[in-house]
Simulated assay, not measured.
Amino acid sequence: MTMNNQQLFIKKSNDEVELFSFEKLTNSLRNSGANENDIATIITKLKLEVYDGISSNEIYKKAYALLKKHNRIAASRYSLKRAIFDLGPTGYPFERLVGALLNEKGFKTKVSVILNGECVTHEIDVLAEKDKNVYAIECKFHSDKRAASNVKIPLYINSRFLDIQKEWNSNSKNKTHLKQGWLVTNTRFTEDALNYGKCVGLTLLSWDYPKNNGLKANIDTLALYPVTTLTTLNKKEKHQLIDKNVILVKELINAKEKMKNIGISEVRIQRILDEVKQLCEN
């Protein structure tokens, strides 16, 4: 596949301008599971439609629409980052997603737990236990893709964790050890935030951090896709299901009644479940 030699600059969501890379887009399409023929067709069409100064959002929408025509399952995976933003506006569905991810890794989890600290009480987004060690996890959900978690956030989270840890580990009734605090976000951390987390032993997880083991990599590996990725549901239906506490694609397998209750026909339910099956198997 030959790339266009003409240099194109695109406007990112944070209003910064950067050189557009067809190679980077090709890799994103390939990582979503699109085959080489479909990628070649999409890139050829996009070369006729992109222009200097186009927004990254417009390129995404064009690529997604073309991919959806060729391969719905690849389109679902390609939309993952946007789909997580669409879980908002509250952070609770994101907390459920993080809890499910930890369950798949062998942790027992509880979402939204009130714990006593030495000084004050705290609400913990996810409490996870494995091998008699307990982890207090704070989930920082951003609905704005331009947002980054700066150093103030891990500073605050670590101080809360230390308050809880003192109380937990000094309480003879607790048969487990509160070992570590975690901070998970759906966007990114600033460099200072990462450095602080490493220094104090706070586990940090973002969209692409740690490298090859971030949120995206884990969701793809474990097939823990949110319902907002599905191409067979419209936006209203997705949020109606989220309101009924159906957050993950695989939860739809046992949610036929909930789908009926929001007016989805038997025929469409089968189409939705076919997409669920393919997405989870891939």
Rank of each mutant, 00 (worst) to 15 (best):
H239L: 10
A128I: 04
F189Y: 06
Q278T: 11
A40D: 10
N212M: 11
E23K: 06
Y60M: 15
L222Y: 06
S55N: 08
F161A: 13
K47T: 15
Q270C: 12
L29R: 01
T41Q: 15
D131H: 10
V50E: 00
K173R: 13
E16I: 12
K62V: 06
S13K: 12
I124Y: 05
R96H: 14
K24E: 09
S56Y: 06
T26I: 07
N169H: 11
L230D: 03
L48V: 12
G99D: 03
I219A: 02
E251K: 03
A34F: 02
V50R: 03
H142P: 02
E251F: 05
K110V: 10
Q270Y: 15
S143G: 14
N218F: 00
L215D: 01
N174F: 14
N133S: 08
V184H: 00
S170C: 11
L204D: 00
T109D: 08
G263F: 02
Q165S: 12
L25T: 00
G53K: 13
N31K: 12
L273V: 09
T190S: 04
V246K: 03
T2W: 12
N234E: 06
G88W: 09
S55H: 09
Y60L: 12
N218V: 00
L205V: 05
A217C: 15
E36K: 15
K211P: 03
S28N: 10
Q7E: 11
C199Y: 11
K244S: 07
I253H: 07
K250Y: 08
F9M: 13
N150M: 11
F9C: 10
I153F: 07
E251D: 05
T228K: 04
V200K: 13
A136L: 06
N150A: 07
I253D: 05
K238N: 06
I54M: 14
L87K: 02
K258H: 09
S56F: 14
K179A: 01
A40K: 12
L67F: 02
I264C: 05
D208Q: 10
K175S: 13
K68I: 09
G201M: 05
L183W: 03
E49D: 08
M3L: 13
N174M: 15
E237D: 14
I262S: 09
K12Y: 03
K198N: 04
G201L: 01
L183H: 01
N31Y: 11
D208S: 08
F9A: 14
K24D: 05
Y60P: 13
N195R: 13
A147E: 07
D86P: 12
A83Y: 11
D208F: 07
D144T: 10
S159I: 07
I219F: 02
V227M: 13
N103L: 04
K12I: 05
T190N: 02
T229Q: 04
T187G: 00
A147Q: 06
N261W: 06
S206Q: 04
K256P: 00
N245W: 07
I272C: 09
H70R: 15
S143F: 14
L67R: 00
K12D: 07
N103I: 05
V184K: 01
T176Y: 10
E16K: 14
K132M: 15
V246G: 02
N37L: 08
T203L: 09
K277Y: 12
L67K: 02
P89M: 09
E49I: 15
V126S: 03
N4D: 10
I39Q: 03
A75C: 13
E237M: 11
L204S: 03
T221A: 10
I39H: 01
A63E: 01
S149G: 05
